[in-house]
Nucleic acid binder design. Structure first.
Lengths: 337, 337
DNA sequence: CTGAAAGCGCTTACAG
DNA sequence: CTGAAAGCGCTTACAG
């Protein structure tokens, strides 16, 4: 295994100082007013010797690692892995690399990941924040660029990419009502995160605006720790032994996937006996026997936007916070007819 | 924003040299025979000042970054994102962080990612290698620990975690035959990767051993670049206007998800008219109207194994190559009855 | 137009 | 038992 080629090797090879080589390699000949001939020679030598600069050394000097820390709830959730894929591509185009971590919606794990990534000197964070992490985010953003995705905290001014969750939920539920549904349940999380709260509010407002009195028994809630069991219990309650509602609105894809299993088990007819609308997407939605109507967020807009905001702020820490609000679309299919 | 705390700050605070502080922080007091009292003081000061060592500086000195580079075909494929999740957790337990990249099955992108990650001085690679990357892998493994997952190259001795694809495919197809199927097609990739080749061979061998003559028209192939279209074309050909086979074996989950859509479009009855078995997993398999029988690989065994092999080799570059062979299971469901 | 030198924040062999 | 100093591989202000 041959030794790595260093700046010094090129300098020796050409017969100049490492300083000169550094300037040329980084295209700063102008500032240093390096001779054209020499510059050419240096470039040639760099290629010939296959010089690869040592990122670590560069980072130590520059204080930049060209690394973005990505924290999501769970990288194996298709919603997040699809966003991760976009972020990866966009980031690399700009010379960044992504390290990732899953918080499992736990504030404690979130803090752990933040600490690890801070130690690694990431240049910026892209975070789908977990519940009760306001303080973490507030502190973090005073030190380093932070972009929130999917969720956000109204009390903190940050760069963020999100959708209007209230509107999206409102439209989804209004759509159910327009199609004649009157008793509409919502399967949500028992959680203190703004995007879920807004989805709940949108749901309630749609009922209200359409003259339907909200029945508290319709709002089903699960915890993150026990999704499967909680969904089963809540849904069995409201759907069995007899259907107490005629439509069901799922607040996220994970809830929907768990819920559809119960619906299959109970042998409920969708959409005849129960209409369904969900949020986000999943392969499961396409293959459920009655393909699901769902609120689609453009994952590529989210990913692209997040990387753009992050890198913009890396390059200009003083600029004002930007919220990119992505337009969701309601994809109409058989489950809600 | 207050300045980061340095070793020097602790040294000044306690009134010793940075060397001593470094020894204590890294629990090497023994070697340096630091006084117990001093060590205590230093530790206290480190906590009081909330000292966080600078990883970059450490890395530059030690040549280690405690970073693993993960290269898969596509991080948004649930098979890979689930493995990524396991790798993330296992790696962090051991003090490593993971940077990831998607090769899209392209040798060129693969090389690009390898170069980027090498520059970042990752300590090891975990790779699901793309087609035609033997030489990349061969070169790479002479420089740095490499663990292959999912796929491997028989011509290169490497650490790897895999299943016996031949056996798995053989059993899957034998299962179809045992259930009375006689004309069994396989939807695979037109690709020169060992795991796909072995799955094809297992398929053929199962036919042969059971006295069924293999019909070349049964082996359907798609390219990675055009999965959807290729699958549609190949499957329409063999399933329409009349069914020319009575069973279909999918070589991967991506092929199956694409294929099931066609089957739905054509309105084919599964399993009555066509039995199905697939590889890997997907939420779609559960929600297809006739839940899919599939070959399940333990993703956690794969992820865990990969991290173990990688870190073992980081700590002992000379040890012999290890193949972890994970036992797949055939999960029987309605689609293949 | 070019080079010597300091410095980024650590670790560790060496000297005392 | 402890410290001064070199060095990891770069960048860049400074001097010439």
């Amino acid at each position: 295994m041959n030794r790595k080629v260093l700046l010094k090797d090129i300098a020796d090879y050409v017969g100049v100082s490492t300083a000169l080589v550094s300037y040329v390699i980084n295209n700063k000949e102008k500032e240093a007013r390096v001779g054209v001939e020499i510059a050419k020679k240096i470039r040639k030598a760099a290629i010939k010797l296959n010089y690869q600069p040592n990122f670590i050394a560069k980072s130590l000097k520059s204080g930049r690692t060209n690394t973005i820390g990505l924290i999501v709830a769970d990288i194996s959730n298709p919603f997040f892995s699809n966003i991760a894929r976009i972020i990866e591509d966009e980031a690399r185009k700009l010379g960044y690399v992504v390290i990732f971590g899953s918080s499992d919606e736990s504030a404690e794990k979130s803090q752990g990941l933040i600490d690890v990534f801070l130690n690694r000197q990431v240049d910026a964070f892209i975070i789908a924040p977990a519940e009760h992490t306001e303080n973490q985010i507030k502190k973090l953003k005073s030190r380093i660029p932070v972009v929130l995705i999917d969720r956000y905290f109204p009390s903190i001014e940050t760069d963020c990419v999100r959708i209007d969750n209230f509107q999206a939920a409102y439209h989804a539920v209004a759509h159910l009502i327009k199609n004649g549904r009157k008793k509409i349940a919502m399967m949500a999380y028992d959680i203190d995160l703004q995007h879920i709260i807004e989805r709940k509010n949108g749901y309630k407002e749609a009922l209200k605006k359409n003259g339907i009195k909200f029945n508290p028994a319709w709002l089903l809630e699960a915890t993150f720790e026990n999704i499967e069991k909680d969904v089963e219990k809540a849904m069995t309650n409201i759907l069995s032994p007899r259907l107490k509602v005629d439509a069901l609105f799922f607040a996220t894809n994970t809830l929907a996937v768990a819920g559809l299993k119960i619906i299959n088990q109970l042998g409920i007819k969708v959409p005849d006996d129960l209409a369904i609308v969900s949020f986000d997407e999943s392969d499961a939605f396409d293959f459920f026997y009655s393909p699901l109507t769902y609120v689609s967020q453009s994952l590529s807009e989210i990913g692209r936007g997040a990387v753009k905001l992050a890198t913009d702020r890396i390059n200009n820490g003083e600029k004002k916070c930007t919220s990119i609000v992505v337009q969701p679309r309601l994809i109409l299919r058989k489950s809600s007819v």
